[in-house]
């Protein structure tokens, strides 16, 4: 079964001992040329438009460069400014807040959907399609519809809450306290179908014999879930958490279209700060420092996750 994981890039054995050295070398050179000729069309674009900007971002973070002046070396000044920049603190806090809500809720929702939909009954495909549907919908449409659903006075969400007896339902995207929860709910709804697909693939990798053995031992459905399904889903859960983390920390478009970072700065996240500083204001250097901070944050969390995973495995 297709198991989603980063492929091992183990070097493959080179062809066994060739008759003569020079002809072998010529062969390697030819193979290298052929190999590169395949890779080049994509690599040229990739190097120019991804690799070069990535390296540039690293350098820019240590410079002062506004859209008018010319670049000037600053050393760590940009980072010193970060430490005392209140807007940066706000954006950092909001990004962590979003991640802390989005990661566990999406994980639970997608796992729940996968388990509910992992059965063989007629018409199941329709339900899986329904669960996946939000993910293919454009972000703008999602944001526009949910903004209306969350309308504080007349929106269906608050009408429902009032109907079940909540006298003063939250103001959602109109209030600084509730805008972030509203954004998190929307994003969980949008992403859960995607991770459900990963979990469904993961569920197929658990050998059927384990369930049969558990049943022979008299385990009930809950025990089978706890002792067979969950441990079996460990690898895929790790993978889902890593991807979810990267995706959460770089969140931008959904929030931007829903709230534009507001009300106030209550949903301003790091990516939006990078955009504002770098592209709207033309402060290339400072925005790159924010970008670098974001990158290292994600990098460190990912490394910690890999470490914890390794420790948990042994």
């Amino acid at each position: 079964m297709a198991h989603p994981s980063i492929p091992s890039a183990a070097p493959q054995p080179v062809a066994p001992d060739p008759p003569r050295r020079s002809s072998r070398r010529r062969l390697i050179r030819r193979e290298t040329l052929v190999g590169w000729s395949f890779i080049l069309p994509n690599f040229a674009g990739f190097a120019l438009l991804t690799l070069v900007p990535v390296l540039m971002a690293f350098a820019l973070a240590f410079m002062r460069w506004d859209s008018y002046g010319s670049p000037e070396w600053l050393g760590l000044d940009n980072f010193r400014r970060l430490v005392s920049d209140e807007t940066f603190h706000m954006a950092l806090f909001n990004t962590v807040y979003y991640a802390a809500g989005h990661i566990p809720l999406t994980l639970l929702a997608s796992l729940g959907l996968a388990i509910a939909l992992n059965r063989k009954i007629p018409g199941l495909g329709i339900f899986r399609t329904a669960a996946f549907f939000p993910y293919i919908t454009s972000l703008v449409a999602v944001a526009v519809v949910w903004n209306m659903l969350f309308n504080p006075s007349l929106g269906p969400v608050n009408q429902f809450l009032e109907a079940i007896g909540i006298a003063e339902p939250p103001g959602w995207t109109a209030s600084t306290a509730w805008a972030m929860p509203a954004v998190i709910i929307t994003s969980v709804w949008r992403d859960m179908g995607y991770y459900m697909v990963l979990y469904l693939a993961g569920l197929q990798t658990i050998p059927q014999e384990y369930y049969e053995a558990a049943r022979v031992d008299g385990a009930n459905a809950w025990q089978r879930f706890w002792h067979v399904t969950l441990p079996g889903l460990r690898p895929i859960t790790f993978f889902v958490v890593v991807i979810l983390t990267i995706q959460s920390f770089k969140v931008f478009d959904l929030i931007f279209v829903m709230t534009e970072g507001g009300p106030g700065r209550s949903t301003l996240v790091l990516s939006q700060l990078i955009y504002q500083e770098g592209i709207s204001q033309g402060r290339f250097g400072y925005s790159s420092a924010v970008a670098l901070a974001l990158f290292f944050l994600v990098f460190i969390i990912t490394v910690v996750q890999f470490r914890l995973n390794k420790r948990g495995e042994s």
Partner: peptide, 13 residues
């Protein structure tokens, strides 16, 4: 690497 980390240099280019 999040796109946001290098979108500004990309934009300058």
């Amino acid at each position: 690497i999040p796109w946001q980390a290098y979108m500004v240099p990309q934009y300058i280019m």
